[in-house]
Nucleic acid binder design. Structure first.
Lengths: 245, 245
DNA sequence: CGCCTATTTGATCTGATTCAAACAATGTGG
DNA sequence: CCACATTGTTTGAATCAGATCAAATAGGCG
């Protein structure tokens, strides 16, 4: 059992709400089993009926769906401290898949444990519910992104979001974040082809807005990037947090 | 106060879960004030911090967001019995707007009343949470739709969804549903131009899959339409319900 | 009737895809 | 430690799905 501060779940929740000591203790004592998974592995698949949720401890995961003709749409990216399949708590079947992008350390928590937690600490129900609502807010923004922005703005917008989400959990150093997402994956997330993702990235680099190499994304001109993206961070609901970069 | 069966909220929730008599009573006695609103009116706007939720009693509502350059993306359609802005219960600011498409009868319920309801009937928390999770599932499917399907499939898919959602609450008669959504609005929901929506509708009509006139959508060939759309109803999480049409 | 909103049609243009191939980086096993 | 396979990035050219522009038609309705 680790100290509350070190616990990725506690750290993440504290980045968006206040927790009482009892709540923290309850969270840290949630029974879970940890598993290491390689890159590009499915964790749960469309159609599965899971009986546990998956907490990302380390690495990048994503949710996605495939079409009949072999294309795929990535619906979200997930980093340490997030529970990508929390919805399985109330929706019996998975309507999409959850997979790793990089090697991951994952913790699995039985639905029953979570239900018990909520019974004993009703206030936490709202905290986790809120998490799923922010997920949904991000989905909405992505719909907007894919449906109504041109390729350059689309890409810029996604990068803005990932940057800010990393910032919220203290993963920004020197205006940079770890960025192991490939251009193909960026394409699957934005509804663009690899080729076009590549060209638009060059465009953004050319405008000196960012660099992206060796799996590191560095934002050179935050305001410029926001401008190109038409980015408004409201939808992330990171209340109170200072947005300056 | 009306009988539980007549109450749109109760009817809708019963279409997806079982309610105890006490729960039904509690729902029916939720304090709410009713307001009639004309077509194309905003109910809550991006940036607002509402203190009540809006239950649709009659008519069509939608959630949408606008871009800086005047385009808009519709993120969802809502019919009687739904609470489109339930998320405001846990997210202080609206990250999108909620508006009417047709004239609507709306009931407003104070956040406080809902919180009280959940305290007294904890099981209902899960029921409403689940509602927001299904919303999110629909957002995901729309991302897929907009990002990865061609115009014809996109439109067909949206129509399949609306048809099935109406069916779930008993609003299908003779393979037909009321359909007051304009082609412009369909375009805003699918990320297509009005012109192209029109052409794709003609395509679907030409294949004898459906008719759409006088604000009535009739599905002539459900299997064919599903096929064109690549439609799989799993994401609607209408469990147990017979999907045959 | 005349105004306003929605649908339809035709012609043109363009952002993004697709196809094809080179190139770079990373890792693997002999 | 190098040859080779694999995966990711980059470049160029051709093509196309869907947007845009422009205008006609068709419904409601005060």
């Amino acid at each position: 059992m680790q100290a509350p501060r070190e616990h990725p779940l506690v750290r993440r929740l504290e980045s968006i709400t206040d927790l009482s000591p009892e709540e923290k203790t309850a969270l840290v004592h949630l029974p879970m089993h940890v598993r290491e998974v390689g890159p590009d592995q499915d964790i749960v698949r469309e159609g599965d009926k899971p009986s546990e949720c998956c907490l990302v401890l380390q690495g990048y995961a994503c949710r996605y769906k495939g079409t009949a003709d072999g294309k795929r749409q990535i619906m979200s990216f997930h980093v340490a401290g997030e529970i990508p399949d929390l919805q399985s708590l109330h929706l019996r079947s998975m309507d999409h898949s959850l997979g790793t992008l990089t090697p991951c350390r994952l913790a699995f928590i039985a639905h029953q444990s979570l239900h018990g937690l909520f019974e004993r600490h009703p206030r936490l129900t709202g905290v986790f519910w809120r998490e799923t609502l922010i997920d949904a807010a991000i989905f909405r923004e992505w719909m907007m992104n894919i449906g109504r922005r041109d390729a350059e703005a689309r890409l810029a917008h996604l990068l803005c979001e990932l940057f800010l989400r990393h910032k919220a959990v203290g993963l920004v150093q020197d205006h940079s974040i770890e960025f192991p997402i490939t251009q193909g994956e960026l394409g699957d997330a934005t509804g663009l082809s690899v080729v076009h993702v590549n060209r638009m990235l060059q465009e953004l680099r050319g405008q000196k807005l960012l660099t992206l190499e060796d799996r590191v994304l560095t934002v050179l001109d935050w305001l410029g990037l926001k401008q190109v993206a038409g980015f408004d961070p409201l939808y992330l609901h990171q209340e109170g947090r200072d947005e300056g970069v």
